[in-house]
Design a protein around this nucleic acid. Structure first.
Ligand SMILES: [Mn+2]
Ligand SMILES: [Mn+2]
Ligand SMILES: [Mn+2]
Ligand SMILES: [Mn+2]
Lengths: 258, 258
DNA sequence: TGCAAAAGTTAGGCTCTCCTAACTAATGTG
DNA sequence: CACATTAGTTAGGAGAGCCTAACTTTTGCA
């Protein structure tokens, strides 16, 4: 008498239902769909353009044809707009879902680091799975336990529950002029090894760094990190991968400056 | 150059690989498989017999034919032994996997209740999903944060990391003789509403209850709960569903007693 | 012991997610 | 502007999970 509840597209398999198409915003998305939306949001944000199929494929480590297929489905769900051979861009409902995932991911990262002693190079992988399994209540309780933090352990801003994301202007350390000094705002969180390396240089959100020199041809950057120790101990040469992973606060633009 | 890694039966879809059959114990199981193993373990434990297809189906809220199909797969993975029309029983490797899930589930429940203020009637649903997403490291850190608890919030024993489960003999409150007094050891955790009701009677692991009367024909049980208040306030009539969900410590059997 | 009810299985489908092979559209460069 | 390169698509397939309908075993009991 327990009437199995012919679940929505929910998660595991299932069958049943008719042709869904308009995502009335309420139905639960699968973990896969959630990851696509998150990736597309980040690509749009990062490039300012429609997200390209191959870029999505690379980010998710999935073959391009699989992405093509999924994009068609996401478009049918009205989570994004899709024109063949052009890229995709999220609809309002897609963006809402993406921001929700970003919040979940970052709250989880912050909680693991703040309450369970996780090192910052391992929180990403854990959050990548938990973000799909945690209830909204759990996310809220974790955020509350931390006093509603504004940033994750890597410096990325945490969207609020209502989907607001404060976008502070940031630039890559790689783009900074020689001689300039800036505050580290964030470090890309995908590569754990890079995070461990960066931490060994005492670079983390909040540290001040000065660009001492830049080798030609997109070459290594010599930076001086503020902190303890001799100037020599605090000076390091970092490759362009690292210099592009480290984001600094954009210098404050005064109106009509020199 | 990022060589997508032709994943194992892992989770989402995928294809590829050849015919796997002997579960060398190491490969990751899908969430679905994990839930089946957990259910089968509990049914075997509870009845002392091989788990029946329909019982598994009911427990997991899945149609019996789906279970038949899965049992064939689990048998191929050597997680259980299966003879058509008879039930199934877990192999050593299946039992190991089941106990691992039981530990994860219960550690998560304990953590949610102990560190995040979850009420005991909501931890089960949350744990049911998180148990498949959490890493071993996370489970260990949660257990450590709690000082390696021996029981979950409902009184169920938590298996150790190496798969040992201390089985203290327990009996259903429903089976206790009229006049007998016993300590509540555990309460079934699946039904949140029942848990909320039971808590409202001040029944929880540790409380002492005395069976005052039993109505005929599997009827309601009148119990007196130890604690504050008048005897009338502490006396309640509970139905057989509740009386079967509440487990009490089995009376110590003295050798050759009267 | 015979047979109906209960338990369990097989057959055939469907969705979701992802894959490879092969093809087509867009692009940018001499 | 042709045309090779790159980006993206279609075609066809696979496996995990789950379903309903129809069939087969087992079992309890008159
Ligand atoms: Mn994810
Ligand atoms: Mn992060
Ligand atoms: Mn589960
Ligand atoms: Mn429990």
């Amino acid at each position: 008498m327990s009437a199995r509840k012919v679940a929505r597209p929910a998660e595991r398999g299932h069958s049943g239902g008719g042709a869904r198409h308009g995502a009335a915003d309420g139905e639960p998305l699968t973990g896969s769909v959630e990851d696509y939306l998150k990736a597309i949001y980040e690509l749009e944000e990062m490039t300012g353009l429609a997200a390209a199929t191959n870029a999505i494929a690379e980010r998710l480590d999935i073959a391009p044809p699989s992405v093509s297929g999924m994009l068609r489905r996401l478009a049918a769900l009205e989570l994004l707009s899709y024109e063949r051979y052009k890229g995709v861009s999220l609809t309002a409902s897609g963006r809402r879902a993406a921001l929700r995932m970003l919040r979940r991911h970052r709250v989880i990262e912050a909680y693991l680091a703040g309450e369970l002693g996780y090192p910052w190079d391992r929180v990403h992988a854990e959050a990548e799975r938990l973000e799909h399994a945690a209830s909204d209540e759990l996310i809220d309780r974790m955020a509350a336990a931390l006093g509603h933090p504004a940033h994750d352990p890597h410096g990325a801003p945490i969207p609020t529950r209502d989907g607001t994301l404060v976008m502070v202007p940031r630039q890559m350390l790689a783009e900074q002029a020689v001689g300039s000094r800036a505050r580290v705002a964030a470090v890309g969180d995908e590569d754990g090894e890079l995070l461990r390396y960066v931490a060994s240089l005492a670079i983390k959100p909040g540290t001040m760094v000065t660009v001492v020199a830049r080798a030609p041809f997109d070459g290594p950057l010599t930076v001086e990190v503020a902190g303890k120790g001799t100037k020599a101990q605090r000076t390091h040469v970092v490759g362009s991968t690292v210099a592009r992973a480290v984001m600094v606060d954009a210098p404050v633009k005064r109106k009509r400056s020199t």
